[in-house]
Amino acid sequence: MTALSQQTIDATRKNESQLLASWQANLDASGASRDSRINHAEFETQTRDFLRLLLAGTNNGDSANIAASEWSDVRAFLDGLSRSRALQGFDSHTTANFIFSLKRPLFELVHTQYASNPTELGSQLWAVTELLDALGMYTVRAFQKSREEVIARQQEELLELSTPVVKLWDGVLALPMIGTLDSQRTQVVMESLLQRIVETGAEIAIIDITGVPTVDTLVAQHLLKTVTAIRLMGADAIISGVRPQIAQTIVHLGLDLQGIVTKANLADALALALKRAGLTVTKAT
């Protein structure tokens, strides 16, 4: 691996603002900085911050070894950048291009510096290429890792929401909800409950929210809609799993669940459902 010479390092420091300007111009020309998923001011801050860290890295550390500790700030920056790009739904190509588009401005700088020294020019161009390629590859790997994390989380969310509709008794269905309730999948789960009510002719549906960590206005809206729909179908609804902290929060939030039967746990809800069905549970003697 070829390292950057002191002359190149000094030149980049001296020409930091021109480098930044032509790098940003490059990114503007490619449309990268005008993507609606990212705000322009933020994009400019990212280019400025990265260039500053890169120059500090070349000054303190060996440009041929970005795994060294002098490059830890640069690596941390690229980790964060890759992660946020992955979450915003960018692809790896666009993400890595952030780095690769810095090649041209740096090449131009090296060209002017070594105009009269072809040997040194060649070796310094090579050093710049190796450094930016290494940083670009690092970015792609970090991006890939973040993407995998996003996918793993999404799979988890899907699992969380593939909630079964359980028959507890003749005429009594239960829907144990687990996980976050505010995605579009909620609607799907609620619809399958309504479908099962039609199929089985159930008279009571218990929606259990023990596994739902947060009940906010959107979740409440989903629940209210579902309860209304259940009633329109001629059945009754009970919401169970309303823990004390959730009950208090609902009150402060100002939600009006009046007219909806709620129970602290599923057992109480089942007991009520059986009673309404005219059944009593007695101890065998």
């Binding site: 960590p213 947060t214 906010d216 959107l218 004390p244 902290q245 959730i246 208090q248 929060t249």
Partner: peptide
């Protein structure tokens, strides 16, 4: 404490949305 955690998280959920 748990009640306050729940309240704060719920408020955060509203504002984030």
């Amino acid at each position: 404490r748990l009640v306050d955690q729940t309240k704060l998280v719920t408020a955060a959920s509203e504002l984030a949305r």
